[in-house]
Every structure is written in structure tokens, then in C-alpha cells.
């Protein structure tokens, strides 16, 4: 039996965390760790060593891109793939995040029944490793 994928979901909106956790855990059979801020995500990522981080872009305090750079700067989290979750899925925005080194981008709103497949598809494409910026 293969180990369940461990996902760190970072979003300041409690309702998004609730539906994201349900989708990843119940639909996708994944193990989910939740963070309500970028600052909380940094510690959790280092401690939990998730297989992937789903990172909201627009958050108060440390926003998604800043949190991403901090994760990359820490050797213990630098190799963890990060997927941005954002309402801004215009091509230029997606290219900007991929150029930064993100594994991919998932649009918001998302379909909770499809979210786990979308995460797996991105990880399959990158081989489960953080792409180099």
C-alpha cells in the first residue's frame, strides 16, 4: 500500500480550508495539514515535510509569493513543490509564478471534487520535485 500524499494547505479563509481539507482528505485520500497564514506555513512545512504545499496568493501578512520565497530560502523546505492557488489565472500571472519556480497554479474558485486530481496532475508533471526557478 502506498503512503498517502501529505498536503499543506495554506489559506487565510477558514471556509476555504474547510472545503479544501474535505476535498483532499475525503475525495483524494490525502493527508492534509492546514495553515491559516504564510508565517504559520513556514514552521509547519519545516516540521511536517509535506509532499506539496497549496499556497493562497493573496493573504494578509506574508502573502503567497513572499511565503514561497521564504520556503525556497530554507534548505529544509526548498525542495517541496509549491502550487499557487489564485483567482488571477491570466496567462501572464501563471507564467510569472512558474518562472518563480512554482510547480503549478490552480484557479480559485476550484471544484472540490476535482481538486485532488488537479494536484496529482501537477505533481506528475513535475515528478513531485520543486522545479528550479
Amino acid at each position: 500500500m502506498t503512503r498517502a500524499l501529505k498536503v499543506l494547505l495554506v489559506d487565510d479563509d477558514e471556509d476555504i480550508r474547510a472545503i479544501g481539507e474535505m476535498a483532499l482528505t475525503e475525495v483524494g485520500g490525502m493527508q492534509t495539514v492546514l495553515a491559516s497564514s504564510g508565517a504559520a506555513a513556514l514552521g509547519l512545512a519545516a516540521r511536517e515535510q509535506p509532499d506539496v504545499v497549496l499556497l493562497d496568493v493573496m493573504m494578509p501578512g506574508l502573502d503567497g509569493p513572499t511565503t514561497f520565497r521564504r520556503l525556497r530560502d530554507d534548505p529544509s523546505t526548498a525542495a517541496i513543490p509549491v502550487v499557487f492557488v489564485t483567482a488571477k489565472v491570466q496567462r501572464s500571472e501563471v507564467e510569472r509564478y512558474v518562472e518563480m519556480g512554482a510547480a503549478g497554479v490552480i484557479g480559485k474558485p476550484f471544484d472540490p471534487m476535482r481538486l485532488p486530481d488537479d494536484v496529482r496532475a501537477i505533481l506528475d508533471k513535475t515528478g513531485g520535485e520543486a522545479p528550479r526557478a
Binding site: 479563509d13 493573496m58 474558485p109 476550484f110
Partner: peptide, 14 residues
Amino acid sequence: LGAAHRLAGTSGSY
């Protein structure tokens, strides 16, 4: 603007 951004994404996901 921030509140509208959050609610647009959240309500759609639900």
C-alpha cells in the same frame, strides 16, 4: 477589495 476577492473565490468553491 480584499473582502470581495476572498468571497468571490470562496463562494464559487462552495
